[in-house]
């Protein structure tokens, strides 16, 4: 867990990360590469998980709320709001913390223990800025797209249940996902995605950057990155929900 000392080092690293790049051209060259590595390469897992979770959430909702007093279309509404409010932003971010976070921590950690980061520093390069800033900015820029994609896939999974089973008519499901839509929920989901993207990239980079020792320690740094960025996401989720929805 974050101790005060750790928090201080994290803040100092972020100060170095968010300073002016030594060479803007190199930053703009790195940014799309990172967006592909962290965002585009995550689309597959998001697609699979969101479709299946959307399908299973709709099935569970139908099975557990079967009542003559609850209209059937409300199942579509519940799925839509669950995807928008929590799944696509929070749960998907926890999954990304595992995939992207461990990738960032192990990549930077390996560079640290093989002295590649020292080599950059000795050249006069701000290694934190060069290595971490494109990752943080890249993931933040990808998050709105990933969150939107996740919502879409979740609803697609629900539609699959409506089409391929007789649990809910497709017309009811489609009506439900359009019923009483609150546009702010989408904004809320996007904002959460941006914050979580920052947390995943920066916390994971922090653990990688301060890795030391050998391969085992890089593995440890990677585990710490996933655990601590997940905890930070959960805490931030409560704070943002309290600030934006209550």
């Amino acid at each position: 867990m974050f101790g005060l000392d750790t928090l201080g080092r994290y803040v100092k690293l972020m100060q170095r990360t968010f300073s002016k790049p030594d060479n803007w051209r190199m930053f703009w060259r790195q940014l799309p590469k990172e967006m592909v590595k962290l965002g585009v390469d995550s689309i597959g897992i998001i697609l699979i998980i969101s479709i299946f979770m959307g399908a299973i959430m709709l099935m569970q909702t139908i099975l557990n709320t079967e009542s003559p007093f609850i209209p059937r279309y409300s199942n579509g509404l519940i799925l839509r709001d669950t995807m928008l409010l929590e799944f696509a932003s929070s749960i998907m971010s926890l999954l990304l913390a595992g995939k992207v976070g461990s990738n960032i921590a192990s990549e930077i950690g390996s560079m640290r223990i093989t002295e590649q980061i020292d080599a950059m520093e000795i050249m006069g390069v701000n290694s934190a800025n060069y290595l971490i800033l494109p990752k943080v900015v890249g993931l933040i820029l990808c998050m709105p797209v990933l969150v939107t994609f996740s919502v879409f896939c979740g609803l697609l999974g629900g539609a699959g249940i409506a089409v391929f089973t007789d649990m809910i008519p497709l017309a009811d499901f489609v009506y439900g996902i359009q019923y009483a839509f609150i546009p702010f929920y989408y904004t809320y989901s996007m904002i959460k995605g941006l914050f979580f993207g920052f947390i995943i990239a920066s916390v994971s980079a922090f653990y990688g950057y301060y890795a030391y020792g050998g391969a085992l320690d890089v593995g440890r740094a990677s585990t710490n990155a996933v655990v601590n960025s997940s905890i930070a996401i959960l805490l931030m989720n409560i704070i943002l929900t309290r600030l934006m929805l209550t």
């Binding site: 002295e115 080599a119 050249m123």
Partner: peptide, 25 residues
Amino acid sequence: MLFQGAALFDSMTVLENVMFPLEMF
């Protein structure tokens, strides 16, 4: 600086490694 383990950037080719300080500065 020449490091014990060479410390070449493994995501870059040989030419990109040598060009890196030139690209930066």
